[in-house]
Structures are given as C-alpha cells and as structure tokens.
Amino acid sequence: MHELGIVFYIIRDVKEAAAEHHVEHVSGVVMDIGEVSTIVPAYLTDCWRWAADKEDLLRGSELKIHIIPAVTLCGDCQKEYETVRYGKTCPYCQGGNTWLLRGREVEIKEIEVKDNN
C-alpha cells in the first residue's frame, strides 16, 4: 500500500532528526503535502496511527498535514494557474505546453516536542 510505504520513510527521517536533536519523544509531526502528490491525507494519517504507535519515540504522536496548493506554469504565455481547477490546459491561452511548478511535495516540515521540565 502506497501511504504505508510513505509513512515508513517519514518515520525513518523523524528518527534521524530526533537523534540529532537529542529528543526522546515526539508529540507531533507536521508534513507539507502537495495537492497532486498522489497521497491521500486520510490514508496517510491512518497508516501513521498504526505504525507510529509501534515506536516508543512516536507513540501517541499526531501527524498534521499541511496541503500545498498545486500551481502550473504555462510555457506559452508564462502565466501561472491553479492546477486542480484547470488541469493541463492553460486557461489564459488554451495552450498545452504547461509545467507543474508546485504541488508534488512530500516534505517533513517540522517536528513538535512537548517540553515538560
């Protein structure tokens, strides 16, 4: 399953970052997910719950998803437009010579740690 595989990559990278910052427990992980990244946010958080609770570092932690809107650039008229609304055809000049600028990100933005001293 796609989202579970992605969750394993996130866990790997969060573990690495936690070790680097000497963190013993992570309470939240904030993701930047592009609107057209092929990831279904609800599946991702379900998979996260299942996999994160198996790790001491991440037990009970929340995966927060921040969606990055997809933007396409038209190579013919150089204008930018909303990818999801107009697809691959430029709404300004009807050209098809278009390129995705943003929207495929799968990025760990930050991790949250509860400081209880």
Binding site: I6, Y9, I10, R12, D13, V14, A17, H21, V23, S27, G28, E105, V106, E107, I108, K109, E110, I111, E112, V113, K114, D115, N116
Partner: peptide
Amino acid sequence: MDEVKIIEIKKSIFADNQ
C-alpha cells in the same frame, strides 16, 4: 502547562533516496 518546542526539518522524504 506543557510547552511545545518546534524543530524545523524541511526535508523531502525523497532526499535520502536520491
């Protein structure tokens, strides 16, 4: 009250694979 500390990561999950 617990204070939440934020650690910025900004890392694509594709970076290690690359």
